[in-house]
Amino acid sequence: MLLGKSLRGEGIFSGFPMKQISILLLIFSVSGVTALLADTPPKKIALSDFPAAAVEEVVVPVPSEIFAVLDKLGNPNWKSQLRDGKALTPEDRARTALLLGNVIAEGFVAVEAEDAERVKELGRQVLTLAEAINVRKSVIARSKSITDKADQRDWRGVRAEFDGALQDVRGAMQELNDQDLSQLVSLGGWLRGTEVLTSIVENGFSKDGAELLHQPELVNYFDRCIGSMGARLRKNPLVSSIREVLRKIGPIVNEGGADISIDQVKVIHDLTHQVNQKIVNGDN
């Protein structure tokens, strides 16, 4: 996964000798850095000057990027958003990939709720689901770290481990030439994150909260991803129903902009809730 692609990060900041870190800290200490202004960029550019080939693919935000804003807007009841129970591992690989993304997103919810037991349980589920699609090895260490950091109540650390698990799983799948399944993991995570986001926004509606749903390029991106998948996967009933959902959500988040109404939030919530139920329970 190199040229013209999004990259998978390795263990963050591990393996750098302290001396090197100290030197870098000196170089990049923020006060000094701001003084190092150099090139003067144009105030306005024509994005149309960038052909498709000159535009990199979207990096899908993790749920905690959105949850961080919700925390600033109010005090959401994260515990009430947690899903009960443990999903059984599906036989269908597409559903397993979607469920894996869903479970990782649930991990971010559990972190917000600061529910250590649930976090550990979800960490174990990540391992089980990863095993079902032959990428267990890639997340063994992450799963252990999730447990350790949850015990220490190091929530920032747990967030980083769930993010890392997502990237490691996707990276392992791409190494196995399972690009499509890798996209489904991201999609599964986004669907669960959006379900939780809409639930919170609906319960304490504000214009700023609703604006977080303005994600047109992301919705289009997922639609394009499904469109470019192999016929077998594209025609998978679950994948196909998700595409229908995306096409219903697309116009709302595209045209709504900063003015997404509470009714529209409810529509998106119902759509994502229904499709997530299918991912968890398997009834297409």
Partner: peptide, 15 residues
Amino acid sequence: LPYYKQGYSIRKDAW
């Protein structure tokens, strides 16, 4: 790294 130390969560995903 300096931004991580200032509380920014650094994404593992990259371009």
